[in-house]
Amino acid sequence: MTVIERPPLLSRLKPWLSGFDIPLLLAIFWLCAWGLLCMYSAGYDHGTRFVDHARNMALGLGLMFIVAQVPPQRLAALAVPLYTLGIALLIATALFGISKKGATRWLNVGITQIQPSELLKIATPLMLAWWFQRRESVLRWPDFIAAFALLLLPFLMVAKQPDLGTGILVLAAGLYVIFFAGLPWKLILPAVVLAGAGILALVVSEDKICQPDVTWPVLKEYQRHRVCTLLDPSKDPLGKGFHIIQGEIAIGSGGMTGKGFMKGTQTHLEFIPERTTDFIFAAFGEEFGFMGALALLAGFTALILRGLIIASDAPTLFGRLLAGAVTLSFFTYVFVNMGMVSGILPVVGVPLPFISYGGTAMVTLGLSLGMLMSIARARKLVKT
């Protein structure tokens, strides 16, 4: 009788675990630890937020592990179907979507409600990276024009819902791909100068353009209010400016070392609106202070730098473009969220990765990190 001895569990798992980028994993686990710690404090008296956050985080990490096993060439093959599906779902949302608080962002698919715009955070950079990979040997101006068209379509559809926060993230992810694909600086610099001049004009003319009888072109009324509230939140301290003022008070009261774990008065007396979602950094700053914020920023910085290294070493143009866009998308999330909580950017619905509560956001996060890990694994396999 022949006895076949099964190899140890570690040996069987080794092919699945090999190739994972250890520095990137360490940065992820560091941020996950801070996220769980902060959510326990901010959400322990907020129903099942902590348990749900831990479950969502486990789901995100599981998706990262699964997607990391998919070779980049398979990811490229999914670009067109995912992008097409995302656009189709956005059209269905516009026609049959569910409206909440004046926004039509959700679609009933029978068993649950989904927010199709979240899919475009992944599908748009994936599609653009695939497009430039195909045009690599014959890249010309019409190819960049087509790329902008592919980007503006989902951005405008999402912004019309309206969901400017998600729209900005979709737009930023696509612009990063186009930038890394070789968009000339002579086109980038004028846009940056115009944006800077526009911001300066807003600040200088705030007293005139923020009068109640002044109507802004293009932007909706609630978006005008957000910008004017950012310029001077004290004009409506108990209304539109409440979020910004309370966020600044919480962060400032944390001082150098913070008030201590679970000792944030602004947080637990419920002065901070959305303390487990968009404004969780205010709760974090109050309890952990400047030093805690530095530790959190160190984790994000490590993740972003490691992602850019993975992008620079990727064996294909598709991998370089996708990894670069995914990595800088994390920068956009962090900059926009911390900026709006600190009062330097308008309040938009952008979560802080790993820290803010949100199941859909955590799924998107896991998929993005999985693609980054897939590109890192492909780089190691090429070297070996």
Rank of each mutant, 00 (worst) to 15 (best):
L9W: 08
L10C: 06
W16P: 00
L17E: 09
I22Y: 12
L24Q: 12
L25V: 07
L26N: 10
A27Y: 01
A27T: 04
I28P: 00
L36P: 04
L37S: 09
C38L: 14
M39P: 11
T48H: 14
T48L: 14
R49P: 05
F50V: 12
A54M: 15
R55C: 06
L59F: 05
G60V: 05
V67D: 07
Q69V: 03
P72R: 06
Q73E: 13
L82W: 09
L85E: 01
G86D: 02
A94Q: 12
L95T: 14
K101Q: 11
G102I: 07
T104M: 15
R105Q: 09
N108V: 05
I111Y: 11
I114Y: 03
I122W: 13
A123Y: 09
W131L: 14
F132L: 02
R134T: 06
W141K: 12
P142L: 09
L150I: 15
F155W: 11
L156I: 06
L156C: 15
V158W: 01
K160P: 00
D163R: 02
G165S: 03
T166E: 10
G167C: 08
I168Q: 11
V170Y: 10
G174A: 08
A181M: 07
I188G: 06
A191V: 15
A195K: 03
A197T: 13
I199P: 02
L202C: 14
L202N: 06
V204Q: 13
I209A: 11
Q211E: 15
D213G: 02
P217C: 08
V227C: 04
T229C: 12
L231Y: 06
D232W: 10
I245S: 11
T257P: 00
T257N: 14
K259D: 07
F261N: 09
M262C: 14
Q266D: 03
F271R: 07
D278L: 08
F279P: 01
I280P: 01
E286H: 10
F290M: 05
L297P: 01
I309L: 12
S312F: 09
L317R: 15
G319I: 00
A323W: 06
F330E: 00
F331M: 12
T332F: 13
T332G: 05
F335V: 14
G339Q: 05
I344P: 10
L345E: 03
P346K: 12
V348I: 13
V350G: 00
P351G: 08
F354D: 01
S356Q: 06
A361R: 00
M362Y: 00
V363F: 06
V363P: 04
T364M: 14
L365G: 02
L369W: 05
G370V: 02
M371F: 08
R377H: 09
K383N: 10
T384V: 13
